[in-house]
C-alpha cells in the first residue's frame, strides 16, 4: 500500500540515495512548476500519502515555501539549505562538521574507500547527530575479495558506536544499528509503499528511475498512476528476499533492474553487502552485551554460514 510520496522540487534536487545526479542536468526549467507542486500535494492528500520534499542547492522563493508549508511533510535538504531540514544530506567530507546538524537525520553518500579514509569525521558526526545514514555509492562495484575489507570497516565503525554508547549517547548508524532493531524487512519500498513525483509532473518508482530515463514513468498527475507488475515490488514476490533476514537491506529495485534486469531479484553484490552488514550488527550486539551496554528493542541475530542467500535458494525451494 502506498504511504509516501517523494517530491523532487527540482531536477537538481540533492541525491539522498544510491543514484547520482546526471552530470548533464541542465534542463532549462529544472524547478517543479508551482501548479505541478500544488497538484502533487493535492494528489498526496487524496491518497493519504506522507510527503517528503527533496530540495535543490539553490534557495526556493517564498511562493514555493508557502505551498510547501500547506501540508505536513518531511524536508530532505542539501547542506547548503540546512535550515529546518528533517533529513540533511552532507555534501562532502569536511574537517569541520556543521553545528546545525543536531536533531536532523544526517545522510552521507560515500564509497567504502571514502568512508575508511574519513573515520575521524564519522566519529565527529556520531558525536553530534542522533542518527547517521551512510549510503554506499559503490555497491555495484563490490567484489567477493572486498568482503574482508568491508568487514574491517564495519568493525571500526562498531567501535566508534560503542564509544558513543559508553558515554550514554545511543546514536544510530544505519549500517549497523538498523538490523539490531528490526524483526522483519524494512526495505526502501519503491513502487510498493513509496512513489516519487518528478518536476515534469510524472510519477516514478523512485528518483533513480527518473534520472536514468524520464520515459520510465509510472503515470502522471493528469491521468493518475499506472504501475505495471506492481506485485513484483512487494517482498512476497521476491523469491530470494522473502526468505532473507538481512532486514536492514534497502532491497534497491533500481539496482536490481540494472544488475539482474528484473525488479524483484537482487544482485549478488547487494546481497553480500547486506549480509556483511547483518553479520557486523550481530557482532556489535555481542560486543554490547560483553560491555554491559543495553539498547532497548534489540533482537537476537542468528549465526548463518552464507553471505548470498541465493546460494541457499534450492534449500528454501
Amino acid at each position: 500500500m502506498l504511504q509516501y510520496l517523494i517530491i523532487l522540487l527540482d531536477d537538481k534536487s540533492v541525491s539522498y540515495c544510491h543514484y547520482e545526479l546526471p552530470s548533464d542536468v541542465s534542463r532549462e526549467e529544472s524547478l517543479m512548476p508551482l501548479d505541478t507542486l500544488r497538484a502533487g500535494i493535492v494528489f498526496a492528500m487524496k491518497e493519504n500519502l506522507n510527503i517528503q520534499f527533496v530540495y535543490p542547492e539553490q534557495a526556493l522563493s517564498a511562493e514555493y515555501a508557502e505551498v510547501i508549508e500547506s501540508i505536513d511533510h518531511t524536508k530532505i535538504k542539501p547542506e547548503a539549505q540546512a535550515k529546518e531540514a528533517d533529513v540533511l544530506v552532507l555534501a562532502e567530507w569536511k574537517k569541520q562538521i556543521p553545528d546545525d546538524v543536531e536533531g536532523a537525520t544526517c545522510i552521507i553518500r560515500a564509497s567504502r574507500k571514502e568512508l575508511q579514509e574519513n573515520l575521524e569525521q564519522v566519529k565527529d558526526l556520531l558525536g553530534k547527530v542522533m542518527r547517521l545514514n551512510v549510503v554506499l555509492t559503490d555497491i555495484e562495484a563490490f567484489k567477493d575479495e572486498d568482503v574482508a575489507g568491508y568487514q574491517s570497516l564495519l568493525e571500526a565503525l562498531s567501535d566508534l558506536l560503542i564509544d558513543q554508547f559508553k558515554i550514554g549517547r545511543m546514536v544510530q548508524l544505519n549500517l549497523l544499528t538498523d538490523r539490531l532493531l528490526l524483526t522483519q524487512m524494512n526495505n526502501c519500498g519503491a513502487g510498493d509503499t513509496t512513489l516519487s513525483l518528478a518536476p515534469n509532473g510524472k510519477f516514478y518508482l523512485c528518483p533513480a528511475f527518473y534520472y536514468d530515463d524520464p520515459e520510465q514513468d509510472v503515470g502522471n498527475l493528469k491521468d493518475g498512476l499506472n504501475i505495471k507488475n506492481r506485485q513484483l515490488m512487494r517482498l512476497d514476490h521476491a523469491p530470494i528476499c522473502r526468505h532473507c533476514d538481512a532486514y536492514q537491506c534497502k532491497r534497491c529495485i533500481w539496482m536490481n533492474c540494472r544488475l539482474t534486469l528484473d525488479a524483484n531479484t537482487p544482485s549478488h553484490q547487494q546481497c553480500v553487502v547486506a549480509h556483511v552488514g547483518r553479520n557486523a550488527s550481530r557482532n556489535l550486539l555481542k560486543k554490547m552485551a560483553e560491555q554491559g551496554i543495553h539498547m532497548s528493542d534489540t533482537h537476537e541475530i542468528k549465526e548463518i554460514n552464507y553471505l548470498d542467500p541465493f546460494n541457499n535458494y534450492k534449500k528454501w525451494k
Binding site: L259, N264, K317
Partner: peptide
C-alpha cells in the same frame, strides 16, 4: 554475468 541469470534460477510457478 551471473547476476543476469539469477531471476531465471529463482523462478517458481506461483510467483
Amino acid at each position: 554475468d551471473k547476476n543476469k541469470l539469477r531471476p531465471f534460477l529463482t523462478l517458481d510457478r506461483c510467483t
